Simulated assay, not measured.
Amino acid sequence: MLRPVLLSGLLLLTFGFVFPGLLWAVGRLLPARAAGSPVAVGGQVVGFERIGQKFTQARYFQGRPSAVDYNAASTGASNAGPSNPALQAVIQARLDTLLLLNPELRREQVPTELVTASASGIDPDLSPAGAYAQVARVAAARLLPPAQVRAAVDAAIEESWLGFMGPAHVSVLRLNLALDAQRP
């Protein structure tokens, strides 16, 4: 009877006080990262490196959909399983909208990440395939040659750290800012 009580106490101490305290301390040591790593242009914060945001204009690359409308204060997924009819309807609506906005894409060319929300709801990155799927729309909206926009995507690809810490990705915010800096 004493062992379960001691184990419960140890787990409460570890995960109720020590672990949150450690996270708090790391946040104090790295305040910019704890705040989402703000990105400033001309001295004004325009977004966050680690927090996705909604881009609605055709001239901008769009990130993953968000189940929480990109609200960093209430991150989370829809928690609906793949067989849930409501989730299937949401994904179909996202797919229809994406194909309408990107008429050069065929259904089978659409990366899953462009129609499904991430677990956090605020994923700031896309895979290279997710970015390349939007090149024609962004190029047309910006009146740029598609090759120039594709080159911007190529330059924005960040490889995994040491080759094994996650897949290559593209920061949607950084890519959009790079294209804004190129203004035709």
Rank of each mutant, 00 (worst) to 15 (best):
A40F: 02
P31S: 10
T56W: 03
A58I: 06
F61K: 00
R33P: 13
A25S: 11
T75E: 12
A72L: 10
G76Y: 00
Q53W: 13
N71A: 03
G52H: 09
S37I: 08
L22A: 12
F17P: 05
Y70C: 04
G27Y: 07
V41P: 10
G43D: 08
Q53F: 10
V45Q: 08
G47D: 03
Q44T: 14
L11E: 13
G42D: 07
A25R: 11
F19S: 13
Q53P: 03
A32F: 12
D69E: 11
A73R: 11
L11Y: 13
T56Q: 15
V46D: 15
A25Q: 04
G16H: 00
F15G: 14
P31C: 13
L12H: 06
Q57Y: 01
V45G: 08
Q53L: 14
S74W: 03
G16F: 03
S66E: 05
P65I: 07
N71M: 12
V46P: 04
A25V: 02
R64P: 04
L10M: 14
R64V: 00
Q53N: 09
L10E: 07
Q62R: 06
A32M: 05
A35M: 04
F55Y: 15
P20N: 01
A77K: 05
S74Q: 10
V18D: 05
F48R: 14
L10C: 06
S66R: 05
V18Q: 15
S37L: 14
A34T: 03
V68G: 00
R59E: 11
F19L: 10
G16A: 06
A77D: 13
A77Q: 06
V46M: 13
V26R: 13
G76V: 07
R50A: 09
V41S: 02
T14N: 06
V45I: 09
Q57N: 07
G47W: 04
R64E: 03
L22E: 04
L23F: 07
A58S: 00
A77Y: 02
P65A: 09
L30Y: 14
G63S: 00
F19P: 05
F17V: 10
G21C: 02
G76D: 02
Q62D: 07
A32C: 05
V45C: 04
L22P: 07
T75Q: 12
L30K: 10
R50L: 15
P20W: 03
G76F: 06
Y60M: 07
V68S: 05
L22V: 15
V18T: 03
V46H: 12
P38M: 02
G36S: 10
G43Y: 11
L22R: 13
F48D: 12
A72G: 15
L13H: 08
L23R: 02
Q53K: 15
